[in-house]
Design a protein around this nucleic acid. Structure first.
Lengths: 143, 143
DNA sequence: GTAATTGCAAATCATTTGCTTCGTA
DNA sequence: TACGAAGCAAATGATTTGCAATTAC
């Protein structure tokens, strides 16, 4: 999956391969994920202006869960109660998060642990190794 | 806070400065945190053999929350539903986590983003900057 | 004695699951 | 038409909060 999968039609064909049907809820979910720069929660997906139908939270949950299982979407922990999600098609992102206001900033940096990750994969024998790197602090506004 | 705070009496004096009273639940909580190598959940704290009284989950919750607020304990996200906690007195740790069995391994490596963190702190103006780095994959046992 | 702590119970909140009905392929 | 998807409601599970009874200092 590469950057050119950052459009809905290409994502939809991936979904078709997974065996998902093209429903309004799926298209809306993908639209939100494509249009948003930052990771979003399930609730944020359903409430986004890009999500132009109303649907049950359970539906969004099941859609996103299936997308995660099929590696179309990445689940990110963060520290908030709700999990965040973003498209794998995006280049890997590291984050800078404010403990005060909860703002999330995507760091525009070359990922610093690529080489280390390869080393760890070799040493540990782990498969499908990925990492999550977040910086936490207090932004200037939160003093 | 340094490595020599990895004992209960020293932690207790820190707690006294915070204004916490020396109760059985506090001592037990600290004992679990000192003795365990890996981050633990609230439930794991209360169920640990080192936690030698029985007490309400709300009590552990309030104790640990206060310890987190006063930077004695660090809260770690991970991907499990429950949050994990560890003493800040421990040297910074990075983790290798199996998506299959959920095992958590503490990585014995020099932290690779120290320098980057200083740079980000300078650029962003964030205070109290810290980071969390986790590698996720599937261990050999989970194939 | 007084303020911090506990225990207990109830409220939240984000999932997660069961089941029946709906709609896409 | 058949099978995945959606709606609705109920079950979980981990916090989180209110309040009265305790207890440490």
């Amino acid at each position: 999956m590469a950057k050119d999968d950052l459009n809905i039609s290409s994502l939809l064909s991936t979904c078709r391969e997974i065996g998902m049907r093209k429903t309004k809820a799926l298209v809306s979910t993908l639209r939100v994920l494509v249009s948003t720069e930052q990771p979003v929660t399930l609730q944020q997906i359903a409430e986004s202006p890009d999500f132009d139908i109303s649907c049950d939270p359970a539906t969004v949950y099941r859609l996103v869960t299936k997308l995660v299982e099929n590696r179309v979407v990445r689940r990110i922990g963060f520290h908030s109660r709700a999990a965040h999600y973003c498209l794998r098609a995006r280049y890997h992102q590291d984050y800078l998060i404010c403990r005060g206001c909860g703002s999330v900033e995507v760091l525009e940096i070359a990922c610093p642990v690529e080489h280390l990750e390869a080393q760890i994969a070799k040493d540990s024998g782990f498969a499908d190794l990925e990492h999550e790197l977040e910086f936490y602090g207090r932004c200037t506004a939160c003093n």
